[in-house]
Design a protein around this nucleic acid. Sequence first.
DNA 1: TTTGCTATTGCAACATGTTGCGGGCTCTGC
DNA 2: GCAGAGCCCGCAACATGTTGCAATAGCAAA
Lengths: 154, 154
Amino acid sequence: MLPNPTASAEVASGASPWDQVADRLRAGGLRWTPQRRTLIEVLREHEGHVTASALIARCKERDRTTTPSTVYRTLDLLEELGLVRHGHGHDGREEYHILPDQVHGHLYCGGCGKTWEIRPETGAVIVEALASQLGFAVDLSHVTISGRCAGCHD
Amino acid sequence: MLPNPTASAEVASGASPWDQVADRLRAGGLRWTPQRRTLIEVLREHEGHVTASALIARCKERDRTTTPSTVYRTLDLLEELGLVRHGHGHDGREEYHILPDQVHGHLYCGGCGKTWEIRPETGAVIVEALASQLGFAVDLSHVTISGRCAGCHD
DNA sequence: TTTGCTATTGCAACATGTTGCGGGCTCTGC
DNA sequence: GCAGAGCCCGCAACATGTTGCAATAGCAAA
Ligand SMILES: [Mn+2]
Ligand SMILES: [Mn+2]
Ligand SMILES: [Zn+2]
Ligand SMILES: [Zn+2]
């Protein structure tokens, strides 16, 4: 229903994908609203991983009338457009990857509380194992693996 | 602080691990209460995977005065005793494995909504990859991998 | 510019968890 | 049995999401 993310040519050299959002929404019969503009402004300032509630807090700084449900719904939309991807932290809370370059999973150490991205080679092993053994196509970006890092072994 | 799960010998042959709970709690200076008794009775009737809120609902059937926070706290305790293990479904909600025999991860297909346990051989590949490449000790039981099953490929 | 369609918002209610607190209850020791 | 110690319960408040609904407000066509 929405225009294919990868189909939108990056015509303007050096242009940020955020610049196209308004047009891409309208092209799909959707609306460009002040609430959505606020969220995009916030997202422009971020990179990597952010929790949904952190994004809501940032939106509130710019617009005190921000409503959580609207932000959550807009994030769903942006995910359909391929501009963000959500995953879940070790406790199940949502985390968003902004402008994900390549899909990657996440590691969480229950000892020190640190997190890492799973490197492509490692991710590939997981994807391959599930693909070859079960024909299952893994969505790495939604995976968080818990455990103990090298420094936290007992 | 609590007695080691694996240290409690299974003396009574054929006895259910639930029979030992009261004693194991008291041995750790903890109490055996009606609320905990109710949850154990519910758990006795279950096998495999159950969501936390399903367990709360079952407890309420037996005792209308059941309070969620008490159930959550008791589940935490039982997890320390090794009698249950929690993980998170694809949406981040808690799921409990009752009396987990061997640790295993979970698969979720976003196409048909079905879930599977990750078989030991497959789990081993994941554990090994993280161990050898990063020295990371994976807790498979807390892992849910999303994607598309063989029948749901586009 | 005005009009009209309908996507979107904000709200309220709900679902699922977590946490601090004060009073009550379980255990143990006598 | 009783009493004291302190674990635990229920409650209230909060955190994080989701959903149905009625009113609003984008957008495009006239
Ligand atoms: Mn968890
Ligand atoms: Mn999810
Ligand atoms: Zn660590
Ligand atoms: Zn499927």
